[in-house]
């Protein structure tokens, strides 16, 4: 098995719901807590497993906002694991999930240097490295209904922009989505072979916004609006 996520950049609306759900679930999960520093102070900060950034792609009028969630990619060539001197960082052979054993980590930061995707954050209070667990404490939990055995971020996404599944199975929804939508990996030149894939935005013709001829119904609507306002 090779478990991971597919992120759909076409539908992601950048609401940060996945990041909040991740924080909420994992702050009492296996590598809990996700410490906050100064949460009510002037400059709050803290540990997150999932961060969303926002980019503008292209030049006006052919530009587009793309929202970009990033968490651990559970790489095949996970250098973060190779460089770890204590053995705290490990990649599970059975499903490819990369984890940090909180009882072994000495907080040297070396693995975070080796991660290209900014997926690892040191918890300055516990002194250990923390990262996305692929919600290992949900996906194998036999106590909850089967359809809920998915990562918190995937379940919560209102735009269905996140998918979870097995990339080793060519007919799994994630493999199919990558195949059919041209899913790609980030920073392929570094050869980490990340498991998580990103689906590019679909190509649409730009929607014209200037110099439009108004339809009759819209004219009536505007007239009604003006009358009611008075």
């Amino acid at each position: 098995m090779r478990l991971g996520l597919v992120i759909d950049l076409d539908t992601c609306v950048g609401c940060h719901a996945c990041a909040v759900a991740c924080k909420e679930w994992n702050t009492s999960g296996t590598t809990a807590p996700l410490t906050d520093y100064n949460p009510y102070g002037a400059k709050p900060s803290g540990v997150w497993f999932n961060r969303i950034r926002h980019y503008e792609i292209g030049e006006y009028p052919y530009n587009k906002t793309v929202n970009f969630p990033m968490s651990c990619m559970h790489c095949e060539n996970a250098e973060c694991v190779t460089v770890c001197p204590t053995g705290a960082s490990h990649k599970r052979p059975e499903d490819g999930i990369v984890l940090v054993d909180q009882d072994k980590c000495m907080g040297c930061n070396y693995c975070s240097w080796a991660c290209p995707y900014g997926a690892r954050e040191l918890d300055r209070v516990s002194g250990t490295m923390k990262k996305c667990t692929l919600c290992i404490d949900r996906i194998y939990d036999m106590e909850i209904p089967e359809e809920e055995r998915q990562p918190a971020c995937v379940l919560t996404c209102p735009a269905h922009a996140r998918m979870f599944g097995d990339f080793d199975d060519p007919e799994s929804p994630v493999s199919r989505a990558v195949r059919e939508r041209g899913g790609y990996q980030l920073l392929p030149e570094l050869n980490y072979d990340p498991t998580n894939h990103y689906l590019p935005p679909r190509v649409h013709a730009p929607i014209p916004t200037e110099g439009l001829k108004k339809k009759a119904a819209i004219k009536v609507k505007e007239w009604v609006n003006r009358v009611i306002e008075r």
Binding site: C84, M106, R124
Partner: peptide
Amino acid sequence: LANPKNAWRAFTRWRTS
């Protein structure tokens, strides 16, 4: 080190690190 009590473990992964 942020967690020096585990520093002794740093000798264990000499095969890769």
